[in-house]
Write a protein that binds this DNA or RNA. Sequence first.
DNA 1: TTTTAGTATCTTGCATTACAAGGTATTTAA
DNA 2: TTAAATACCTTGTAATGCAAGATACTAAAA
Lengths: 112, 112
Amino acid sequence: MAINTENAKSQMRKGFLEYCILLIIANKPVYVSDIINELKEAHLIVVEGTLYPLLSRLKSSGILGYQWQESLQGPPRKYYELTEQGRQFLAELEESWNDIKNGVELLKNKNI
Amino acid sequence: MAINTENAKSQMRKGFLEYCILLIIANKPVYVSDIINELKEAHLIVVEGTLYPLLSRLKSSGILGYQWQESLQGPPRKYYELTEQGRQFLAELEESWNDIKNGVELLKNKNI
DNA sequence: TTTTAGTATCTTGCATTACAAGGTATTTAA
DNA sequence: TTAAATACCTTGTAATGCAAGATACTAAAA
């Protein structure tokens, strides 16, 4: 059983991914490639196969809605945006993130 | 398909649980109840059924070792401690945590 | 001695979900 | 009409937190 840092990092990413994606969508309507690019800028690499199921899940939960929009080059795109419920949910995730961040920093500081 | 904040928070916890536990063990040798108590203080609640398999995994990966120690009240306890390899691994998780924290904060700040 | 309560360790089965890999559809230009 | 680029989506796998329950040791009460 090998321990592998990439795997550990990927596990860390998992939980926040939903939060990060909602942060991105909250800013302005975006489609999948936009999301991937913004995540890349934040060094939080994700692939399409991860994103599509996640977006579908959030859509059918009422967190997200979308609108089709034509593209100048290529097929039409689904632009996602937050619903009212989505904004509330994002606010709750915000709290969770702060809780967890503070918790980890507490443990780190104990350790100096 | 209901979205549930507790579940989302639990998902967030998942990834860096390993990191938090190693932080705690790095500080001084501890057994399971110690770990649970320290996590509770940091508001990162975890149950035994989560911890035992995780500790076993880290043990058989060479990240952790342990020593039996008698208790004044009740059965003996397994006190876990980091191996040399474990300290290296912890340093790598440290980097991952910083990366992810910075990434999330970047996305948050874009959003103001 | 037997029972009960408290404290430990550990296992089994389930649900969630990131990811790899592969598939389908639309548009534009050679 | 073929090829390339861009977009959407699905399937199967692996990892892992958690609920629930099992087992074991100790000490004190019945």
